[in-house]
Simulated assay, not measured.
Amino acid sequence: MTVTDARELTGEIADDGRGGKTGAGLAELRRLLADVFGILVEDAAGDADRSRFRGRKYRLGQILGGYLDLWQGVSLAGRIADTSYVLLAPALGSADAVLDDGPVAVLPGHVLVAHPGEEMRLTVGRRCRLWIVNIPLSAIHIALSALGEATTTRPLRFDRLMNIRQGPGQSWVRMATLIRQELESEGALVEVPDVARAYEQALVETLLRVHRHTYSDQIERQSAPGVGDGGGQHRDHWPRVLRAVLQQIDEHPTRRYRIDDLAGDAGVSTKTLQKYFREHLGVTPIEYLRIRRLDLAHQALLAADRSTTNVETVMRRLGFRSYGHFSRHYQQRFGQLPGDTLRLPPG
């Protein structure tokens, strides 16, 4: 697997004479947007007979990104791939997007964040350089785990826009710029796989620290002085019963649990326990157990030696009995199949 990469992009979108756009350029642009940038384009239109583009794409571990220079304006309609977050930032010109929560104008100095599976219409103005970064779900989960949020029960949603001209967002862009310069330099240290993975993790972890999202408050509390690795202050205000059940599941995730037994051990009714889980975690106890096991499976597959480990061994060790059931839930959570995770370089 190629850990790092940087290469040129070029193409041309031509009018087909019937009001549509055609040519190798359009096919190439659609392919690039899907394969590199995680944007699945269903329809495209330009404001000139010929819309040229060029750019550059980069790979840093699982992260794919780069920029496109568009001489004429272009409008794209489609959706974000289910497996990744997409960041859009015009360095020159401007772009307008329509997403699930309405229209957004994106100007230089700001980054727009689109979420997995989100419908999007994107209109890019003339003479625009548009930076695009595709961050897989699995990279987000790895970074969350490193920051102390190993078990996430709700989809992570970022605030829509990040200011990169000042404040913490500017620091993230400086880091991204440094990494880009390294990727463009022949013989740079980033070509060493371990170094590339360290850069990749630092880039995603920093994004999670500087840009607001669903778990920002928990991460801030985990980082506060006096907070150990064992729990985190964000659970302190939860009911004692809920904390006891969570501790039981976290310490013994491979046991076979029944909701009645968990409630009985905690000294409350099944209805009360279900209520606590839904109020504070947004899931049922059994759903939480499945999420916890999936996260442990993900960590085990990332660390495994594929010459001596297979997916079924990890799956069964963590209490999953059906490969189809396990694989479906795993892909929904991490955006890739278990076997794809196992094939990633360790570390």
Rank of each mutant, 00 (worst) to 15 (best):
L161M: 14
H115F: 00
R154S: 09
F53D: 04
I249V: 14
P345Q: 06
E182K: 07
R157Q: 10
H115P: 00
D159Y: 01
P253Q: 06
D47K: 11
D100N: 09
G230L: 11
A77M: 08
R209Q: 12
R157L: 06
R293E: 01
L183Y: 05
V283M: 03
A263G: 01
K21A: 14
H298R: 15
Q248L: 13
I132T: 13
T270W: 00
T284Q: 11
G148S: 07
L207H: 02
L9Y: 04
T10R: 13
G226K: 00
P90S: 05
S327C: 07
I219H: 02
D305H: 01
V86I: 11
Q332M: 12
A202H: 11
I132P: 02
V74T: 14
Q247R: 13
A95L: 13
Y199H: 12
Q233A: 14
N310C: 11
Y288H: 13
C128I: 02
A244N: 10
M120G: 01
E186L: 12
Q62H: 10
L242A: 08
T151C: 07
R278V: 15
A224H: 03
V173I: 14
P285K: 04
L107K: 10
G38M: 10
L70H: 01
D194W: 07
G319Y: 01
H141L: 04
L281P: 05
F277G: 09
V227S: 13
R258S: 13
G78M: 09
G335K: 05
V227K: 01
V195F: 09
V111F: 07
F334Y: 15
A27T: 13
P346T: 13
M175T: 11
L76M: 06
I219L: 15
D15Y: 02
A266V: 05
D35C: 02
Q331F: 09
S94F: 14
T152E: 05
R18N: 11
P136H: 06
A139W: 01
R212F: 07
G20N: 12
R59D: 05
D217H: 04
